[in-house]
């Protein structure tokens, strides 16, 4: 499944597990500008719930989309503030 979003940068966290996907996502978002979209590619199935929870509990980010397929989980996070 492909996304229609305009991706600014891609973060590859395949192979690593909790808490690294969330922490690396936060660090990558900090480097971006408002309106940018970060694509996060993970293989940790827990990242579906964790990235969603992190985005909901953090100011200045919004989870635009999540996709799942072939043990790869993709997350699209927009920096909103």
């Amino acid at each position: 499944m492909t996304t229609e979003l305009d991706i600014t940068e891609t973060l590859d966290v395949t192979g690593v597990s909790c808490p690294i996907p969330v922490v690396k996502t936060k660090q990558a978002i900090d480097e971006l500008d408002q309106g940018d979209i970060l694509e996060v590619i993970a293989t940790d199935s827990g990242s579906m719930s964790d990235i969603r929870g992190w985005a909901e509990g953090t100011d200045g980010v919004e989870l635009r989309e999540q996709t799942e397929g072939d043990d790869v989980y993709k997350h699209y996070v927009e920096k909103t503030g």
Partner: peptide, 11 residues
């Protein structure tokens, strides 16, 4: 350490 790093990711 897992909780500390994750909480830091939440700012």
């Amino acid at each position: 350490l897992i909780l500390a790093t994750t909480a830091a990711a939440f700012d």
